[in-house]
């Protein structure tokens, strides 16, 4: 049964190669976008942490994006 799944009557190499290529290239793009997003979120937080207290308060009430990013980073300032 398992042997049949891998060999696929002699076509196994073609089928697995194409599924593999699709899977790997999708995975690479996913990881790259994910890392980029995390990097930008971190930098964003860093910049905000450099602001003073009053500015932070204003941001928190005004910008929902700010609070969302904070949530996803699980950081409290």
């Amino acid at each position: 049964m398992i042997e049949k799944l891998f060999l696929m009557n002699g076509y196994g190499a073609y089928v697995w190669a194409s599924f593999g290529i699709v899977f790997i290239s999708c995975l690479i793009l996913f990881i790259r976008t994910y890392n980029k997003l995390k990097k930008y979120e971190k930098n964003f937080i860093k910049e905000i942490q450099e602001l003073n207290k009053e500015e932070k308060k204003v941001l928190q009430t005004r910008s929902k994006i700010f609070t969302q990013v904070l949530k996803s980073q699980k950081k409290i300032i």
């Binding site: 996913f30 976008t33 997003l37 930008y40 979120e41 964003f44 941001l59 910008s63 994006i65």
Partner: peptide, 25 residues
Amino acid sequence: YSALIFLMKYKTEIIKVKRSGVKRL
């Protein structure tokens, strides 16, 4: 999968836009 990638890229771009506005707030 495409939607996943799109939304992640989109979030990155929004943060880019907002970042340039943080200082002005």
